[in-house]
């Protein structure tokens, strides 16, 4: 295969990475933006979404699409419920103290990981794609499902954007993000907003995970990579800035996917993490977002 088609393939693979990463990072960014806390267990919500998807799909009979659709609805609900419980039982009692929340969500990370290992096992397990259509390029064939992932992530993104900008829910969220006390004074139930945002953030990660399991399998340790990549994205994109997050996710996802095709994935991650550290040092507000703290 010559360079041109190879680049096209790398770009397409990168786009799949970027789509999934955008949804995952968006969840982390939403939580940070509104609640001002860093959820270190975010990657485990992603993992939980993938594992739940496998479990739901394995229960469903008949055409693989049935199991997939059931997973696409069921897995985010399971993850949302777990996140909601964690928010009510732990985060709220810590009064969202930033440092205590990080320590507590690290604890949550270990608990979820162990729970998955115990109930799901150490094996990687696949979920069948809902359809197996292949797009045939002149130089190579490509999975039609991957194209579906890109489209679905795009649709999801637009939906989130519409909710945030066009609905009362979005208005309430932005008001809370802007000023917690004032929002409270205007009768907004801030603790409910927080609970909802935390669950929604986790559900976005779960949707991303359901989309990816037919491509890469579900495994109890799969949460760390999306967590680190999401960190990278949220930091480069500007802490709490949604537009910055989406742009950064596309750039990072594409470059990570493409560097991984041409070079070593480990090297790509080393460079990514160092880059993030330096960005935070030089511009604590992130590159795209601009607003600091």
């Amino acid at each position: 295969m010559s360079f041109g088609p190879h680049l096209l393939l790398a770009f397409l693979e990168g786009m799949v990475q970027a789509s999934v990463l955008t949804l995952t990072a968006l969840g982390l960014s939403l939580v940070f933006g509104v609640m001002r806390v860093v959820n270190v267990a975010h990657g485990e919500f992603f993992m939980l979404g993938a594992v739940s998807a496998w479990w739901i799909a394995s229960l469903a009979a008949g055409h693989p699409a049935v199991g997939f659709v059931a997973a696409l609805i069921g897995a985010p609900l399971i993850v949302g419920a777990v996140a909601l419980a964690a928010e009510r039982l732990v985060l709220r009692r810590l009064d969202y103290n930033p440092e205590a929340t990080i320590v507590a969500t690290i604890g949550l990370l270990f608990i979820l990981q162990q729970a998955a290992l115990t109930f799901f096992g150490a094996d990687a397990r696949p979920v069948q794609a809902p359809f197996s259509y292949r797009i045939v390029f002149p130089w190579f064939g490509w999975s039609g499902y991957k194209l579906f992932v890109i489209a679905a992530a795009g649709a999801m993104l637009i939906a989130v954007w519409l909710v945030l900008t066009r609905t009362r829910i979005g208005l309430v969220m932005r008001a809370t993000q802007f000023d917690r006390e004032t929002a409270q004074a205007f009768g907004i139930r801030v603790d409910r907003v927080y609970a909802g945002v935390f669950a929604a953030g986790a559900m976005l990660a779960a949707v991303a995970a359901v989309l990816i399991v037919p491509i890469s399998q579900a495994h109890y340790l799969m949460g760390l990579d999306p967590l680190l990549l999401s960190f990278i994205v949220v930091i480069i994109g500007g802490l709490g800035s949604l537009k910055g997050t989406v742009i950064a996710a596309l750039v990072i996802g594409l470059s990570d996917g493409m560097i991984s095709v041409f070079f070593s994935p480990t090297l790509a991650k080393i460079l990514g993490t160092l880059l993030v550290a330096l960005v935070l040092v030089v511009r604590p507000g992130g590159l795209v977002g601009g607003q600091s703290r």
Binding site: V38, E99, F231, I235, T273, L274, A277, V281
Partner: peptide
């Protein structure tokens, strides 16, 4: 020398990132 240019949550994440690298 590098990480101490940041404070609070940023310091936590910078140290995490260096260790991950």
């Amino acid at each position: 020398a590098v990480a101490l240019r940041t404070t609070g949550v940023a310091f936590m994440i910078v140290t995490l990132m260096f260790a991950q690298a």
